[in-house]
Amino acid sequence: MLSSWTRDGATRTGERRRARAQTSPVAALAALFAVCAGLSLYVTVLGGSIPLLEDRAVADPTLDRVHDVIDDGGVVDAERLPDAMTRGPDGRRLNVTLTASDDVWTVGPAVPQEATDRASRLVSVRLSPGQVEPGRLTVVVWS
């Protein structure tokens, strides 16, 4: 009789220990909801702080892409200027102008007065074989 009482007592103590280590399903769901709500709030606030394409200046990266297309060994070739029109951002219009000495080359539609997203850089321009002059490459991007 003493041995059966000990076994029952040991079983009850083990059951109590296991019962204390378990988490209530309601508490687990509440914790999961709190984590998901916090993550959603974080993403919403972060998404609102990132500027949209309309808010960003896109002329500088466009200028880099245009320069990469028309540059040949550190010298810009005016004959490659039409290839630059493929490097504009989607949904935007692009005008590319190259000036050197008294020469001006332009591709793209006419630039409206309200277009303010512009970028330019100094480049070396090949005017003819063996003749290279300093010039300026300018891009204007607008909607």
Rank of each mutant, 00 (worst) to 15 (best):
L98H: 05
G108M: 05
E114K: 12
D83M: 10
I70T: 02
G47W: 01
Q113S: 15
Q113P: 03
A110N: 08
D64N: 14
G88A: 07
D8H: 11
D68C: 02
L98F: 06
R126E: 06
T106W: 06
D55M: 10
L53A: 15
T99R: 14
G48R: 11
L46M: 11
Q113R: 15
A119E: 03
A34M: 10
T44S: 15
E114D: 14
G38R: 00
L53G: 01
V26D: 06
W105C: 01
V45S: 05
T106H: 11
R126V: 02
D83Y: 10
V43N: 07
Q113T: 10
Q131V: 13
T62E: 04
S3V: 13
T62G: 09
G130L: 03
G48L: 08
S4N: 09
P25Q: 02
P25L: 13
V139G: 08
A19S: 15
L63T: 03
T44D: 09
L41G: 13
M85N: 02
V139C: 08
N95H: 15
R93I: 00
G14H: 10
G38T: 09
P109V: 09
L53T: 06
T138G: 08
E114N: 13
V123W: 06
T97Y: 07
A59V: 02
E133M: 11
G88L: 07
V69M: 04
G9H: 12
P51L: 05
A34K: 01
R118E: 12
L127G: 03
P129V: 00
G73H: 04
V140C: 08
P112V: 00
V123D: 04
P109N: 11
T138K: 10
V76F: 02
G88T: 01
R87F: 07
L52I: 00
P134V: 02
V141W: 08
S24T: 10
T86N: 13
A78V: 00
D72G: 02
A78W: 03
V139W: 09
L32Q: 00
S24F: 08
L98I: 00
S120V: 00
N95S: 15
Q22W: 04
F33M: 11
R121L: 12
G9M: 11
T97H: 04
V139L: 06
T62H: 08
R92Q: 11
A84K: 03
S3C: 05
P109K: 12
M1I: 03
M85I: 00
F33L: 15
A110C: 01
G73E: 01
E15K: 11
L41Y: 08
T106Y: 05
V76C: 02
Q113M: 06
P129R: 13
R18P: 01
A10W: 07
G130F: 01
P89Y: 08
L41M: 11
D71H: 03
V141M: 10
T44I: 01
L52Q: 10
L2R: 11
T116M: 11
G73N: 05
R92C: 07
A31G: 14
V123K: 04
A30L: 15
G108D: 02
V58E: 13
V107K: 01
V125G: 05
N95Y: 06
C36Y: 04
V76W: 00
D77E: 10
R136Q: 13
A119S: 15
R16T: 03
R121V: 07
R87T: 11
